[in-house]
Nucleic acid binder design. Structure first.
Length: 214
DNA sequence: TGCACGATGAAC
DNA sequence: TTCATCGTGCAC
C-alpha cells in the first residue's frame, strides 16, 4: 500500500471525499496494526458551510480544521463517541472529510458502520486529534494496484444509475480493482444547516454492505 | 460560571 | 421516539 501524500489532501474537498472511498485507514497502537477500507464519507466545505464545525469560526476545537491539510480532526460527540475527519485544502480553508464507515480489513473488531462505531473499532480517540496523517502509526493508504493505477471511481449518470438498479438486499462490495460506483446523498444529522442540509455531500460505495445508511 | 445542545447509536 | 453522557461555545 502507498501512503497518501500531503498533495492528496490539499485539493478540492469534494474530490478528496470521493477519492477517499476505497482507500485504507491504518492505525497502529500498542503493537497492533488495524486496517479498514473507507466506504462512506461526508464533505464539510468550510466556514460558509453551515453544517461544518468551522462555521463557528476559529475556536479551540475547530483550530485543527483551520490548520494544514492531511491532519486528523477528532472530536467527542454526544459525550460518548468520537468522530474522525481528514483536514483538506490549504491552511485556513477549514474544510474536512468525515469518515462515516469502513469495511474491516485487519484486526478490526466490532461494527464499523457509523462515525462513532468506526472510531471505537479502530481505537481512535481524542489523543489522535491534530495528528499528522503522514506519520507512521496513523495514515491513509491507497491499495497497490497490479497495473499501477488506482481503481477508477465514477458517479453514475441517471440512466446508468437506473441500469445499475438491482433487487434490494442483494448487496456485495465489488472486488478489488473493479470500478467503484459512488452514490451521493444528503449528510446525516445536519438538519439545522438550512439549505446546506439538502446538498448531496455524503458519498458512499454503492451496494457496499458496510455503509451506515444506504 | 452556568447551561443548552450536538457531524451518534441503541433500545423501546 | 427517547435516552445516555460530557465537551464546547456562548449567554450572562
Amino acid at each position: 500500500m502507498r501512503k497518501l501524500p500531503r498533495s492528496f489532501y490539499d485539493r478540492d474537498t469534494i474530490v478528496v471525499a470521493r477519492e477517499l472511498l476505497g482507500k485504507y485507514l491504518v492505525h497502529r497502537s500498542r503493537g497492533v496494526k488495524r486496517i479498514g477500507r473507507i466506504v462512506e464519507v461526508e464533505a464539510y466545505l468550510g466556514p460558509h458551510d453551515l453544517a461544518a464545525h468551522s462555521a463557528r469560526g476559529l475556536t479551540d476545537r475547530t483550530k485543527v480544521m483551520f490548520g494544514p491539510p492531511g491532519h486528523a480532526y477528532v472530536y467527542l460527540i454526544y459525550g460518548m463517541y468520537y468522530c474522525m475527519n481528514v483536514v483538506t485544502e490549504r491552511e485556513g480553508h477549514a474544510s474536512a472529510v468525515l469518515l462515516r464507515a469502513i469495511e474491516p480489513v485487519k484486526n478490526v473488531v466490532g461494527r464499523t458502520c457509523g462515525p462513532g462505531l468506526l472510531c471505537k473499532a479502530m481505537r481512535i480517540d481524542k489523543r489522535l486529534n491534530a495528528h499528522d496523517l503522514l506519520s507512521d502509526n496513523f495514515y491513509i493508504a491507497a491499495p497497490e494496484s497490479v497495473r499501477g493505477a488506482s481503481p477508477r471511481a465514477v458517479i453514475p449518470s441517471p440512466s446508468a444509475a437506473r441500469r445499475e438498479a438491482r433487487p434490494t438486499g442483494v448487496n456485495e462490495a465489488p472486488p478489488k480493482g473493479e470500478v467503484l460506483v459512488i452514490a451521493k446523498r444528503p449528510r446525516i444529522g445536519v438538519d439545522y444547516a438550512r439549505h446546506w442540509a439538502r446538498r448531496h455531500l455524503r458519498f458512499y460505495i454503492k451496494g457496499c454492505p458496510f455503509v451506515s445508511r444506504p
